[in-house]
Design a protein around this nucleic acid. Structure first.
Lengths: 182, 182
DNA sequence: TGGTACATGTAACATGTTACATGATTAG
DNA sequence: CTAATCATGTAACATGTTACATGTACCA
């Protein structure tokens, strides 16, 4: 099975361009809002991919509007590339979790320090969970435009954050208990 | 708050070298086994980081043994760099989940295709969960050497996989139900 | 003696991050 | 008039992936 190799970031931009022409700036905002929780997208990258896709003929720049805004639209070639990519096997997820490196090497770190890191990060994830709850409520109420796919993605985020919070509650505390046991 | 910038991969190698001298080859295997589930490490990178850290004076190469094996040991400077890194704020996690891109753009993909992807990936994660259960059992029984930190890391992996499996069970099926509703 | 595991490394490329530079437009 | 937001882009660097090239030692 041929696994995906083509730039998924670029292909995602094509996905968003199905909804209409957008500037690089719009695409950055759109991507960060809609896939930013599980796919990193930076401004630099977006402009880079747009130029490269323009060269490939997947997008084309329209007339510059106010503030030099250059709206890109997707071409037929772009739609074809997108569909081919979308139908190809999605690769396995990768996660990079710096906190777990800290935990794994916890024996080289004072307990208070480790505990402080764990507390901070638990708070970060609690906030993330709150945000997801808001977003989901707005999607279900219709206040925020969405479809079943977008909802499933948010539910994924919530399942993920819930898992982390469970771990912070159930497993992490044992790491910094002030018992003498090792 | 200064977040981590220094190469976490390199620093992790230093972490493992605390346990004794190792060759690049050993380090690849060790890193993949112990942090590979939440931190990608390739052979190429390991050799690259070892040369660069040798230049920085964080590691030094010992005498070549059988099969050109070049064992590296950590220096005092390396230990200092490691400790400084370990005590610095771990950055937030990043996840890259290609399947969620597929899901988000699910409206452009035939239902059967999406369902096939979801099924395959659910199986992948079910297997990952099984492996974690084995590893945890061996760690707890003492068959596999471990400490409370390594155990917490495995528990994290399990919480994560459990969340994914829950999502596959509870949320994903709605995406490909053959109702006419959208 | 032939296959597998051990062992090191390079080359080329893809992707991602940070920082900077520049300017237009709008809202208060 | 000034701060915030919109808007584009480059430079430099860091990190990560894939593929290749090469050779050694062990074991069946």
């Amino acid at each position: 099975m041929t696994s995906r190799s083509v730039n998924a970031t670029a292909m995602s931009l094509l996905g968003f361009l199905h909804e209409g022409p957008m500037t690089g700036w719009d695409l950055v905002a759109t991507a960060q809002r809609r896939i930013g929780n599980f796919w990193s997208v930076t401004q630099s990258q977006v402009y880079r991919e747009l130029s490269s896709m323009a060269q490939l003929g997947f997008v084309e720049a329209g007339e510059v509007g106010a503030r030099d805004a250059r709206p890109y639209s997707i071409t037929d070639a772009g739609r074809a590339a997108f569909r081919e990519w979308l139908a190809s096997e999605p690769g396995n997820p990768t996660i990079r979790f710096p906190l777990l490196l800290t935990v794994l090497f916890g024996r080289y770190l004072p307990d208070e320090r480790l505990r402080a890191f764990l507390d901070e990060h638990r708070a970060v994830h609690a906030r993330a969970m709150d945000r997801y709850e808001d977003v989901l409520a707005k999607m279900i109420s219709g206040e925020q435009p969405s479809d079943k796919y977008a909802i499933a993605v948010v539910q994924f985020g919530m399942a993920y954050e819930r898992a982390l919070l469970d771990w912070f509650t159930n497993a992490a505390p044992a790491l910094t208990e002030d018992s003498a046991t090792d």
